[in-house]
């Protein structure tokens, strides 16, 4: 309440604007169980989708760079398809997979079935959500990883091969660690983007953060305050991710500069140490 008054008291119509924000409602729901559960699901969905996206992206990128036309062609078609269709459509598609295949079977081709399940039982809203987001993300991550791999000097591969490393070892030990410097900034971007894209799965009624607040305001009609609750949480998580990205970048940047610049915390500490010295 104090904050509003400070911010809006100077405007003539301040009071009416202030009252409509209804900060007490925001405060009431900000840490409510339903919102926190929605947040937890949003985080989990982001994590799993990005894990699938990054792992899939690396595999697709290596496939794309393969000399075998069938391997690189397969990756090309995958990227073409998943980049070429809206992710919203893909979410609907995975959720309605039971229409195409009512039963899913895992087994030896033309042999015995090892596992058999109803599609509806297997592809829950959650599974449909992370499959759609993760598989779509893999297509974008593939191009980011490929850019990273291409940024590494050819001489690195040659030196690794001259030592007797196989192509896979060279990729894992030499090329990818160096490609990370190029891969991480856009991946941080993708992660933040994914955090917000997860809100799309509200369309299949999966109760992540946005759908959680929608469910609440559909009953109490406090639409704007609850949207602000969601917005604040998205901002908080984005802030945490941004800080995390800074440190991951530093880790993979080792060896790229003669000296790494100090972190903000180290800078503060240095300031704190220098103060007493300068006064004496």
């Amino acid at each position: 309440m104090l904050v509003n008054t400070l911010a809006f008291s100077s405007t003539t119509r301040g009071r009416s604007v202030v009252s409509r924000f209804e900060w007490h409602v925001i405060g009431q729901y900000f840490t409510s169980d339903r919102v926190l559960q929605g947040l937890e699901r949003t985080l989990l969905l982001t994590l799993i989708a990005m894990a699938i996206g990054i792992a899939g992206g690396i595999v697709l990128a290596v496939m794309r760079l393969s000399a075998n036309p069938i391997v690189s062609g397969t990756a090309w078609v995958y990227i073409w398809f998943f980049r070429g269709t809206p992710v919203l459509l893909q979410i609907y598609f995975w959720f309605n997979l039971n229409y195409l295949y009512p039963h899913l079977t895992l087994g030896v081709p033309f042999g015995p079935a090892l596992y058999h399940a109803d599609t509806n039982g297997l592809i829950t809203k959650f599974v449909a959500a992370f499959l759609a987001l993760g598989l779509n993300e893999a297509a974008y991550m593939a191009e980011i990883v490929r850019a990273g791999i291409l940024s590494v000097d050819e001489g690195q591969t040659e030196a690794a091969q001259a030592l007797g490393m196989t192509r896979l070892q060279t990729m894992r030990r030499i090329v990818l660690p160096q490609a990370m410097r190029v891969i991480i900034p856009p991946t941080g971007n993708e992660t933040i983007s994914m955090l917000k894209t997860t809100s799309l799965v509200s369309v299949i009624a999966y109760t992540e953060l946005l759908y959680a607040v929608q469910l609440i305001y559909s009953v109490n009609y406090e639409i704007v305050p609850l949207l602000i609750v969601a917005a604040l949480w998205y901002l908080i998580v984005t802030t945490v991710l941004t800080i995390g990205q800074y440190y991951v970048e530093r880790y993979f940047g080792r060896g790229s500069a003669r000296m790494l610049p100090p972190t903000p915390i180290e800078r503060l500490r240095m300031l704190a140490i220098r103060r007493p010295e300068s006064t004496t």
Binding site: G155, E158, A159, A160, I174, Q178, F252, R254, G255, S256
Partner: peptide, 8 residues
């Protein structure tokens, strides 16, 4: 051009 691994 040496081709040392710069991240090591």
């Amino acid at each position: 051009r040496f081709n040392l691994f710069p991240h090591m």
